[in-house]
Design a protein around this nucleic acid. Structure first.
Lengths: 149, 149
DNA sequence: GTATGTGCAAAGTATTTGCCCCAGA
DNA sequence: TCTGGGGCAAATACTTTGCACATAC
């Protein structure tokens, strides 16, 4: 996976450009949220996102919620389950994809930097199931070294 | 995946036996819930489980909740995300594993009856990540034929 | 100027806990 | 009998919506 000039896996500018193409207005909230998510690199729940300093001063939870939904509808943000009560959100690049390694104890989320072995299966399912617009989500759960003590 | 004499992928009796071994008491609620889940075959949220006729008369939501948690702690039930607001529960057999095909529109859940391509990756992660007690969850999302119209 | 975006407050929905009674072993 | 299990009601958490105002375009 390539990184942008800022060292992030997903570059905020790219997402912002795509947001504009989708007809979304360029607001402070939009910029702040997308940049915060790009900087974080890992999926975050809404409750955490609203605490990021650069976001906290800009917009409140409702705006954040609607913004993430809007971005989700345009395929710029993906909503993940990740077994917490709260939904996690992450920026979505076209063709970009991540699998996750999640600690059952502390809930930490790591990106798995490996070739995803599911592509082929996904293609097969596309042919045989009648389902369209496929994408997948793979989570490996375990207990991380810190929680193992 | 083998089926038991009742045609279910997971046999209620096996789970009940394991529950007993784990020190859980044999109650009507336990039997009803396990049998309902075995009969259903697919993951269900708590709200749906409590509506199953054979469960509804037996115990209320709180009991169901605590029962599922208890079973989860002993590894007899697995809690899944599946992208709904509510958590989904499914019986867990040792070594048993399912991947899911989920419709983004109507939320229907199908079991994927295929060899899971993630085993190997999981083993590799076990060796290199320092994480223990690994298991994984794979969901393929799409739009089902019914919702495609 | 107009449609989209925002904030505050209030309503849902799902989950979790307290407390006391009931029942399995 | 003694501990784990169950029921009811209340508390949490997280999400979602209504409505009036602000702002990008």
């Amino acid at each position: 996976m390539d990184r942008c000039e800022h060292g992030h896996y997903v570059c905020a500018d790219t997402i912002l450009a795509r947001a504009k193409e989708s007809g979304l207005r360029k607001t402070k909230a939009l910029e702040a949220v997308v940049e915060a998510m790009a900087a974080a690199g890992t999926p975050m729940p809404l409750s955490e996102l609203e605490k990021v300093p650069s976001v906290a001063g800009i917009c409140d939870r409702t705006t954040l919620f609607r913004l993430l939904n809007r971005l989700g509808e345009h395929g710029l943000v993906r909503r993940l389950g990740l077994h917490e009560r709260a939904a996690f959100f992450t920026l979505a690049m076209p063709g970009g994809h991540h699998d996750y390694l999640i600690c059952k104890e502390c809930g930490s989320v790591e990106l798995l930097k490996v070739d995803c072995p599911v592509r082929e299966l996904e293609n097969e399912v596309a042919k045989t199931s009648g389902y369209t617009q496929l994408y997948h989500e793979l989570e490996i759960y375990g207990v991380c070294p810190n929680c193992n003590d």
